[in-house]
């Protein structure tokens, strides 16, 4: 790392880059969340189901995020594990109105946590209990209960209710991730 990089970062001109992987079941709102976090001029107007994955970039106050937005469809879910290695944070999106598939999301989370690349790392996991505007949606507390999040002991995690369409609740999550990553660097 060159002297100028350090200097630039110290002066706040260049931000530190972090890799984040965004996973969750299909139709949970991963792409919509990432789209909402992007700068206004880069946002897309209509969101289609992701095939494979897409790479997006956005920035918070002090960090520059590179997000791997994975497809949540059943047949693409086995791609997730290949991107765990380089990830410095995980965003796990849950459709809080889909009670039926909460158990599937839980199963996928268990598989994620038991992955070799994740097991050994103290990697922050951010949960978005998305679609909080839907009338049949569950509260963030209820979602964390059903997902069994209280059993995650060795990793920092945080859940926040969100509405990806209006962007409600999203900044709170990003702030948490930023804090976690910065505290880890120290």
């Amino acid at each position: 790392m060159g002297f100028f990089d350090t200097l630039a970062r110290w002066l706040g001109m260049k931000k530190k880059e972090v890799n984040v992987i965004c996973v969750g079941l299909d139709n949970s709102g991963k792409t919509t969340i990432i789209n909402q976090l992007k700068p206004q001029n880069a946002q897309q107007s209509d969101i289609v189901p992701t095939i494979g994955f897409t790479v997006e970039k956005f920035a918070s106050a002090s960090l520059s995020f590179t997000v791997f937005d994975m497809s949540g469809q059943g047949r693409y879910r086995n791609l997730w594990e290949h991107y765990y290695k380089d990830a410095q944070a995980i965003i796990f999106v849950i459709d809080s109105s889909d009670k039926l598939r909460m158990v599937v999301a839980k199963d996928e989370l268990e598989q994620l946590l038991n992955n070799q690349d994740i097991l050994s790392k103290r990697i922050p996991i951010l949960f978005y209990a998305n679609k909080m505007d839907m009338k049949e949606s569950l509260s963030a507390v209820k979602v964390s209960q059903m997902m069994g999040l209280e059993t995650i002991k060795d990793k920092p995690w945080h859940i926040c209710a969100s509405n990806a369409i209006t962007g409600e609740g999203l900044p709170e999550g990003v702030e948490w991730v930023t804090d976690q990553i910065r505290s880890m660097k120290k």
Binding site: L25, D26, N27, G74, D98, L100, R101, V104
Partner: peptide, 19 residues
Amino acid sequence: FGREDGALVMTTKGGGLIV
């Protein structure tokens, strides 16, 4: 069922619903 392909819906003798 829902968005899940491999779902098994069962109704029981006692009037229950299992998915």
